[in-house]
Design a protein around this nucleic acid. Structure first.
Length: 495
RNA sequence: CGAGGUGUAGCGCAGUCCGGUAGCGCACUACGUUCGGGACGUAGAGGUCGAAGGUUCAAAUCCUUUCACCUCGACCA
């Protein structure tokens, strides 16, 4: 793309805008390997921040990390009927274990003599391999609850891919827990949904709606799927995390029983929950502007960048010394900073570069400033600049500003979502709203049937994103069929 | 799998209709002037034009085949 298209109403332009941002911020690039991307150091740094914070939240809620195999024997996957049906269409399969030189002299070929007895599936998710392991780990109620998380890569052979939002291979975490009672498992499901919601809002500054999926959108093999849904700047919804109550489906499929206090054998109750590098995409699409990324300070790998301005060696030394002096003070309070000492780039270049990378605060330090004992503070989110006097409270003020940027970004995104969420009461209204440039969330009555949901999807591409938690009950008629309805649900076009 | 489109220097592209031996911008190298919002000048380096075959005195350009990638759709916790 020759120039930045900016936020436009057309889907294709938004898509180009998004790709351009990711590329210019130096986060990731297409690897050339079918639907897979290379996550570059800057993009990975953002993911690492997310990992660290989320992992702490998992630990605080009693979970531990473990690691299970990448390969899943085909037979494991077929043990839970709904699960295999849901994932069968998108699995990469390992059929051979050896290559050999091409007899025609053209590189290598798959050795036909090295066919696997049983094919291995590259995990699209790990329920099956984990439950086949849990069978050996669980005998008694004393072994429960089992609260395990793993950080891993998974592969889903989707037909259409997008950087971060849907890549063939992606990084994620998946939690898999086993419990003695249904109540406990449901409680865990809701606890982790809450963890995701807190993470999205407090760390990524993405306001989300917590809700439950309809049977149509439910995870393959789950009794209930809960989710957090965010709204992107083009008015499409994005699922930012899911938490599933799996009932006893996997326990039964993998024969995982425990002896209760009365010494009776029972199947265990399960949950699973996951979130992925898709969150990086969600953050980009929620906050960025035409100048590039806008990172919430909590996730930004660099929170403050110092740009020294100078014309000669003497000025270079003076401004760099000043930058380093204040940077060291910031280090003491844990602010993540960078002093841009690159002598081959001019200040104007650096300003643009760090804007594209979304660094929340830029501090420009030139001889003119130092003469006045001040520096120029530029906020990435609002694109404003002001002069601050240097003093004992300077670092403290920067920390306060970072906190305030974090909050304001969340509020700005929330205001956007509120202004793009509305109630619709007739089918004409619904169709008109969903066709708008920035459609957003539509709150509408639905008769509760899968058939109606499918019909609406076929006619408008809108799906039910979720039934919000604590949804107010209200008598009404289905927006599509006119049949009686007890509550409104949230519709949107989705990624 | 359907519909469009693109493959020419590291990146972005022109040249293809009408055949004549490859060009522009950015980036890169050197030197100088610059340096508070993506600097400028001069000089320089870099390409078997996606691949294979054919037509021709001559092919990036015409013909045939093929491969790859992109966008949209179908698909998608």
């Amino acid at each position: 793309m020759a120039k930045t298209q900016g936020l436009t109403t057309r889907e294709q332009n938004f898509s180009e805008w998004y790709n351009e941002l990711v590329r210019k911020a130096d986060m990731a690039e297409d690897s050339g390997v079918r639907g897979c991307m290379v996550i570059k150091p800057y993009g990975y740094g953002i993911w690492e921040r997310m990992q660290r914070i989320m992992d702490d939240m998992f630990k605080e809620t009693g979970h531990v990390n473990a690691y299970f195999p990448l390969f899943i024997p085909k037979s494991y996957l077929s043990k839970e009927a709904d699960h295999v049906e849901g994932f069968a269409k998108e699995c990469a399969v390992v059929t051979h274990y050896r290559l050999k030189a091409d007899p025609n002299g053209k590189g290598v070929i798959v050795d036909p003599d090295a066919k696997l007895e049983e094919e291995l599936i590259v995990r699209p998710t790990s329920e099956t391999i984990i439950w086949s392991t849990y069978k050996n780990w669980i005998q008694s109620y004393r072994d429960l609850p089992l609260l395990i998380n793993q950080w891993a890569n998974v592969v889903r052979w989707e037909m259409r891919t997008r950087m971060f939002l849907r890549t063939t291979e992606f990084l994620w975490q998946e939690g898999h827990t086993a419990h003695a009672t249904a109540e406990e498992a449901v409680e865990e499901t809701m606890r982790m949904l809450e963890v995701y919601a807190e993470f999205a809002e407090n760390t990524l500054a993405i306001p989300v709606i917590k809700g439950v999926k309809t049977p149509n959108e439910r995870f393959a093999g789950a009794l209930d799927t809960y989710c957090i849904e965010g709204l992107m700047q083009d008015g499409k919804a994005l699922q930012c995390g899911t938490s599933h109550f799996l009932g006893q489906n996997f326990a039964k499929a993998f024969d995982v029983k425990f002896a209760n206090r009365e010494n009776a054998l029972e199947y265990v109750w399960a949950t699973s929950w996951g979130s992925s590098t898709r969150l990086v995409g969600a953050m980009v699409m929620t906050h960025s502007d035409d100048q590039g990324l806008v990172l919430p300070p909590v996730v930004a790998p660099i929170q403050v960048v110092f740009v020294p301005i100078y014309r000669n060696e003497e000025e270079q030394k003076v401004t760099l010394d000043a930058c380093n002096e204040w940077a060291q003070k910031m280090k003491k309070v844990g602010i993540r900073f960078k002093v841009d000492t690159d002598d081959t780039k001019k200040p104007g270049w650096k300003f643009s570069e760090w804007e594209q990378k979304g660094v929340p605060i830029r501090i420009a330090v030139g001889p003119r400033d130092l003469a006045n004992n001040q520096v120029e503070i530029a906020r990435r989110d609002l694109q404003t600049k002001e002069l601050w006097t240097l003093g004992d409270d300077f670092v403290e003020k920067i920390q306060t500003l970072l906190d305030s940027i974090q909050l304001q970004m969340l509020e700005k995104a929330r205001a956007f979502r509120e202004s793009h969420t509305r109630e619709v009461n007739s089918w004409e209204e619904f169709k008109a709203a969903i066709e708008e440039d920035i459609p957003g969330f539509l709150s509408a009555h639905w008769d509760g049937s899968s058939e109606t949901e499918t019909l609406i999807k076929e006619e408008t591409k809108a799906t039910i994103r979720c039934i919000p938690l604590n949804n107010p009950q209200e008598a009404g008629v289905c927006v599509r069929t006119g049949k009686p309805s007890t509550q409104r649900v949230l519709f949107a076009k989705a990624y």
